[in-house]
Structures are given as structure tokens and as C-alpha cells.
């Protein structure tokens, strides 16, 4: 009975007793969720357009952030006096680098491996991960770096809001992250719905062969979509880097994004966002209220548990396409 009480009643009592703490936890979950959703978004973009389960998304986040910070430091050394100018110049060059990366990936990996089974392409993104880890450490060094938050004009500090008989503190950078993420998702949605190339992307997502037969260039679409995933990775890298620091430890966020993906469905952009928020909030609530029961560190697998339970009920995820099989 005691166990049942502690699992099913006590946490909710705690929530009721300290509503400000609950709001704070929810907010932190929401912010974490936004970042998970961003990474999942990168996965979904690529999976939809090229059918590749891109494991390298996590390292692309690190690589983009490292390139940005590294270039910024280099530009300052070369005598760009204003930090702001250097930051935005570095940002522009990083975007170019991400484009070059997308082009190289298309040329070196996707094109030779076209029409191979999914698992082979998945393994190829693994090779890519190894390569990028090696390259990143070789060029930028392995030690953690701090993100150039101020030079990019991102806000620092916290806002304290008085509510529910207590204080809730919101980090300004988190608010900025949420705003930027929503702007990016909106513009991606507009890009997909309204532009010519966006329509081509959706056509490829529906069927490669049909898209090819009406004259859509698969190569071009793949470069564009990997570039878009690179931009998403860069944004994620800046936001995540601003919260902690830029290092290869960030790579593990890829594992955080996997439950988000299966929860939302591998092919759905709204699914990635909603899934990210659910996982983020569920994880923080679980860690805060139920964590002490089991000992700390349940964050590592709690998200997977949520996703797994969910999958048993709905195997295609929240918004995923129902898989219809024929013999």
C-alpha cells in the first residue's frame, strides 16, 4: 500500500501543495521539449525526403555549433574588431559550410547508395557520424567551448514572475529559444507549402519514383533537404550551446530525440513538435516527482518508457502514417 501511495498519490499531493514549483517544472520540461523537438525535426525532414534514418543529426548539431564558435574566434583573431560583426559573419559562413556538407553528403553517400535497404543507409549515416566526430575534434579540438551568446545578440539573465503564491523564474535565453523555434517551424511549413521546391520536396516524400517520373531532380531535393536539416541543426546547436556549452557531449541529445521520433511518428513534422513537448515535460515531471522513488538518473530511460508504452497502443506513432501491408 505504501508503495502505491508513493507512486499514485504522493506526487500529486506535492504538485497541489506547491503549484509554483509545478509551473517551474512544466516550464523547464517545455524548454527541453522545444530542443528535443528541434532535433527530431531534423530527423523527420531527412526521413521524409530521402527515407534515411539520419543518425548523424546529433553530430551535425555539434559540428554546426563548433564551426560557428571556431570561425568566430578565428575572425576575431584576424582583426574583426566588433564581436557582433564577427558573430554574424561567422553565422553566414557556417550556413555556407552546412550547405557544402549537405552537397558532399549527397554526392559521397546518398547518390552511390540509392535504392539500398534502409539499414544500409542507416549504417552509412553512422560512418558519417564517426567521420564528423573525427573531423570536428581534429579541426576544433575536443575541449568544451562556450557559445557566443552575447555577440549573437541573444538575451541573458532571467525574469522572475510572481504567481500562485511563489516565484517562477524564466531564463530569457529559453524564451528566445522557444520564439526562434516557432519562427523556424512556421517558415519551414510555409516553405513546404508555398514554394515550388517545397512542393517538390513533398512530392519526393510521397513517392520517389512518381516524383522522378514527373521530372523532379532527386539530387537537388536531397541537397536542399539536408541543407534544411543542417540549418535546423545549427539553430539547435546555438540554443543548446547557450544553455550549457558546446562540446561533443551534445552528441547524446540524438538519443534524446529518438523517443520523440517514435512518439510523434517518423514522417510527421507536427508529430516531432508535439512529441518533443510531451517527452520534455514528461521527463522533467518524472524526474522531479517520481525520480526520488527509484534513485536519480531515470531521465536516461524514462522517455523511452513513455515512447514504448505509447507504441504498444499505437505502433505508427501519434501522427505517423498507418502502415498498410500487402503480400
Amino acid at each position: 500500500m505504501n508503495i502505491l501511495y508513493r507512486v499514485f498519490i504522493d506526487p500529486f499531493m506535492q504538485m497541489g501543495q506547491a503549484p509554483d514549483l509545478l509551473v517551474q517544472t512544466l516550464w523547464e520540461g517545455l524548454v527541453a521539449g522545444v530542443l528535443y523537438a528541434l532535433i527530431a525535426l531534423g530527423f523527420v525532414l531527412i526521413f521524409k525526403a530521402s527515407g534515411v534514418f539520419n543518425f548523424a543529426q546529433g553530430i551535425m548539431v555539434v559540428f554546426a555549433a563548433l564551426t560557428l564558435v571556431g570561425l568566430h574566434a578565428l575572425l576575431r583573431k584576424w582583426g574583426v574588431s566588433s564581436g557582433m560583426v564577427a558573430a554574424y559573419l561567422a553565422l553566414a559562413i557556417t550556413i555556407v559550410v552546412m550547405f557544402a556538407l549537405a552537397w558532399c553528403i549527397e554526392r559521397a553517400i546518398l547518390r552511390p547508395l540509392v535504392n539500398q535497404p534502409d539499414i544500409i543507409l542507416f549504417m552509412a549515416t553512422f560512418g558519417l557520424t564517426y567521420f564528423l566526430v573525427g573531423l570536428g575534434e581534429l579541426v576544433f579540438g575536443g575541449e568544451p567551448k562556450s557559445m557566443i551568446t552575447e555577440d549573437l545578440g541573444l538575451p541573458r539573465g532571467a525574469i522572475e514572475i510572481k504567481m500562485l503564491g511563489g516565484f517562477v523564474s524564466l531564463q530569457k535565453i529559453d524564451i528566445a529559444a522557444a520564439v526562434i523555434a516557432s519562427v523556424m517551424v512556421t517558415s519551414l511549413a510555409l516553405f513546404f507549402q508555398k514554394t515550388r521546391i517545397g512542393r517538390a520536396l513533398r512530392a519526393v516524400a510521397d513517392s520517389h519514383k512518381a516524383a522522378l517520373s514527373v521530372g523532379i531532380s532527386l539530387e537537388q531535393v536531397w541537397v536542399v533537404v539536408w541543407f534544411a536539416a543542417g540549418i535546423v541543426a545549427l539553430t539547435t546547436g546555438i540554443m543548446w550551446g547557450a544553455r550549457s556549452s558546446v562540446s561533443f557531449a551534445l552528441e547524446i541529445v540524438a538519443f534524446k530525440a529518438l523517443p520523440v521520433l517514435v512518439l510523434g511518428g517518423l514522417t510527421s513534422i507536427p508529430g516531432a513538435i508535439v512529441g518533443g513537448l510531451i517527452i520534455g515535460i514528461g521527463e522533467k515531471l518524472g524526474e522531479f516527482y517520481w525520480g526520488p522513488l527509484l534513485g536519480s538518473g531515470i531521465e536516461a530511460w524514462f522517455a523511452y518508457l513513455i515512447a514504448l508504452i505509447f507504441l504498444l497502443v499505437r505502433p505508427q506513432g501519434l501522427f505517423g502514417e498507418r502502415i498498410i501491408e500487402r503480400i
Binding site: M123, A124, G127, Y130, F131, G134, L135
Partner: peptide, 13 residues
């Protein structure tokens, strides 16, 4: 790391 990654891709291709 780089060589292992590149070789994995190479052999898959």
C-alpha cells in the same frame, strides 16, 4: 575516427 567512418561508408558503397 575519420578513417573508420570513411571506410564504413566505402565498404557499404
Amino acid at each position: 575516427f575519420m578513417v573508420v567512418g570513411a571506410l564504413i561508408i566505402f565498404f557499404l558503397i
